[in-house]
């Protein structure tokens, strides 16, 4: 594809016995906002460092704008801006001086540096603090100065590592709109790594989900949701009043219902089709009040929960999930295993 700007080809990085990134094949189009999502330690930062030529891949290669990231790292770094997590500045220099310094490192002409630094500080809303030493800046201010710093070299590609970490909600909103502006208005390509999914999904065109060094799912958010929706299994969380055996029997007789399990006050209903219309009709006829009804497994929330909360747990946990599939006692765990297996398959293909 000619408008692919970032491409990785079986990119692998091994630290000792741990594989940080495993045969990553990624392609990001020009002008796209791509979200690299994954829990801590999934290999996101390692991937980014390899894209910038700061870490050598164990095998495979990465290309930005057709240039090899490891061999031509200077040329790559000329067109790629990188905002590291926990971005730091020289505390004894003012915000403006820090930007000047970055401009000089990029070999820009002095008048260009001055003009651009001023304009960028205004753009990120930092013109008031321009002549303050950065040692006095708050985290949010540093983040905004960091974006100005990245833009000093006028990059075509911007890579941000955990940009939303430790930012207050107001700062977050500004940051997200700035990201959108960078992509839509300036036409820059953005690669954003994060584990905070809600914020990122608002601005991303596509996301890749990264767990344990492997990309397990990649695509538009809606598309990922549909992949889950098309599962044969649906799971409803339900609580009704009154709850008795008659109601349970009535529910289990609805066509499509495979199993009904009672977990305290809530019922888990497993089915092979969307039974919500039939269910509400049945319950209405029986004179029950529906207190809570929630379809699980079909929304992104569920995908995220599965991958991000569970990624810390080991693989044997995963295989236990597989073993549990089909047992009515733990329908949630079984489903989780299935989704995981399915996503893994898609990630590979």
């Amino acid at each position: 594809m000619e408008n692919t700007i970032i491409r990785t080809d079986h990119l692998t990085k091994v630290y000792g016995t741990k594989t940080a990134v495993r045969r990553l094949n990624l392609s990001i189009r020009k002008g796209e906002v791509f979200g690299l999502l994954g829990p801590n330690g999934a290999g996101k930062t390692t991937t980014i460092l390899m894209l910038l030529g700061l870490t050598e891949p164990t095998s495979g290669s990465a290309f930005i704008g057709g240039m090899n990231c490891t061999r031509d790292s200077i040329k790559v770094k000329r067109m790629v801006g990188y905002l590291p997590d926990n971005v730091g500045f020289y505390p004894d220099m003012t915000g403006l001086e820090n930007l000047y310094f970055t401009g000089r490192l990029n070999g820009l002409a002095e008048p260009v540096i001055r003009e651009r630094a001023q304009a960028l500080l205004e753009r990120v809303g930092m013109e008031k603090a321009a002549n303050q030493k950065t040692g006095t800046y708050s985290k949010g201010m540093k983040q905004r100065l960091g974006i100005a710093d990245v833009l000093m070299k006028d990059p075509q590609v911007i890579i941000m590592d955990e940009p939303t970490l430790g930012i207050d909600p107001e700062g977050m909103r500004e940051l997200l709109s700035l990201m959108q502006e960078l992509s839509r208005k300036d036409g820059r390509t953005l690669l954003i790594s994060s584990h905070q999914l809600y914020q990122i999904q608002q601005v991303c065109d596509r996301v890749g989900i990264f767990v344990d060094g492997s990309l397990i799912a990649c695509g538009e958010i809606g598309e990922l949701g549909r992949q889950i929706q098309s599962q044969s299994h649906y799971l409803l969380e339900l609580s009704v009043e009154p709850l008795d055996d008659g109601i349970l029997a009535a529910i289990s007789h609805i066509p499509g219902v495979e199993a009904v399990t009672q977990e305290g006050e809530t019922l888990a209903v497993q089915s092979c089709a969307d039974i919500r219309p039939a269910l509400t009709a049945t319950l209405g006829a029986a004179g029950c009040t529906i207190l809570h009804l929630h379809q699980r497994g079909g929304d992104l929330d569920e995908i995220y929960r599965l991958y991000f909360e569970k990624a810390g747990e080991d693989r044997h946990e995963n295989s236990r999930d597989h073993a549990n599939t089909g047992k009515t006692g733990q329908p949630l765990a079984g489903l989780r295993g299935k989704i995981r297996a399915k996503l893994r398959k898609q990630g590979r293909s």
């Binding site: 700061l54 770094k77 801006g81 990188y82 590291p84 500045f89 970055t102 490192l105 990029n106 070299k153």
Partner: peptide, 8 residues
């Protein structure tokens, strides 16, 4: 981090 990401 920021320094090494510059084209030097």
């Amino acid at each position: 981090n920021r320094l090494v990401a510059q084209p030097i």
